[in-house]
Nucleic acid binder design. Structure first.
Length: 269
DNA sequence: TATCAGGGCCTAG
DNA sequence: CTAGGCCCTGAT
């Protein structure tokens, strides 16, 4: 199917933005995204025109929300540009990336894994979990594994989890599996909570602190005011903003600005 | 081969 | 509030 997107939207930057660990460049400018039971392949055939592998209904029901297409990033860019010289540079560099609405369970596990790990190492661990415990899905391009649900993982031992390369985080993941599969933690219900309560709630899971909780809020619940502060962002604050946190300037768009800065700092490595 | 840092968090003091 | 430890991987 052919889709027109009249907004800032750059497939490569989205995949490289570090918020999704299982999206990737497949071949010849074709990018793959996975969420829940859905897989899509996209290619920009001309400016703003995309060929997508799914039909109209799946696009409307799944991917429009996933890519945050109900939010106009061009307007956000114009509103927020010009407030801070360094942030302006980051915005220009990152223009086209989007904050994705990813599966909360997958993002919860992925961000627990992410602590003290490099992005390639995170991708590898997440892939291993999917390969070992996720159901296989055949597509026109490849065979890939969906990410297993908490219930799928209920009998996994700590050693088995460690063998996926997650190290000491295995115990944290087992705690998340237990709390989510039992219903003690309800990832659907919390979409109703305000930002601060949502973050507080998630922190009852072992291995979930301020940064991980903010990642989940931003990357799977669309909480664009939430700012995960990692080593890259604190470096940006210290090295590029004279030690002064710039995020107060951006209110409900602070999380989007954070992502522009993260992308900018990473791309200059 | 050895060293270091990586999208932090937990625990002790 | 701060310091140390943590399990493993990818990069040099």
């Amino acid at each position: 199917m052919r889709v027109e997107i009249q907004d800032d939207f750059n497939l490569r930057k989205i995949v490289e933005s570090g918020q999704c660990f299982r999206a990737s460049l497949i071949d010849d400018d074709i990018y793959r995204f996975v969420t829940g039971n859905n897989v899509v392949y996209m290619k920009e055939t001309e400016k703003g025109i995309f060929s997508v592998s799914c039909g109209f209904n799946e696009w409307q029901n799944t991917w429009v929300k996933y890519f945050d297409l109900n939010r106009n990033y061009r307007n956000i860019f114009e509103k927020e540009y010009g407030k801070h010289p360094f942030v302006d540079k980051a915005m220009n560099a990152g223009r086209g990336l989007r904050i994705l609405w990813q599966d909360p369970w997958e993002i919860l596990v992925s961000t627990i894994i992410s602590q003290r790990k490099s992005i390639p190492a995170i991708q590898k661990a997440v892939d291993l979990i999917a390969k070992k415990y996720g159901t296989v899905q055949k597509t026109e391009y490849e065979k890939l594994n969906l990410f297993p649900s908490a219930t799928d993982l209920i009998n996994v031992s700590e050693d088995d989890m460690r063998s996926c390369g997650v190290g000491y985080r295995a115990a944290y993941i087992l705690d998340a599996i237990s709390k989510v599969s039992s219903g003690e933690v309800d990832l659907n219900m919390i979409s109703q909570l305000p930002d601060t309560e949502l973050i507080q709630y998630l922190k009852c899971i072992r291995g979930v602190g301020e940064k991980v909780a903010n990642c989940v809020a931003l990357f799977s619940y669309g909480r664009s005011a939430c700012v995960p502060v990692d080593v890259w962002i604190s470096r940006a604050i210290n090295d590029d903003c004279n030690g002064k946190d710039p995020f107060d300037l951006y209110g409900n768009h602070a999380g989007i600005i954070q992502q522009y800065i993260f992308y900018y700092k990473q791309s200059r490595q």
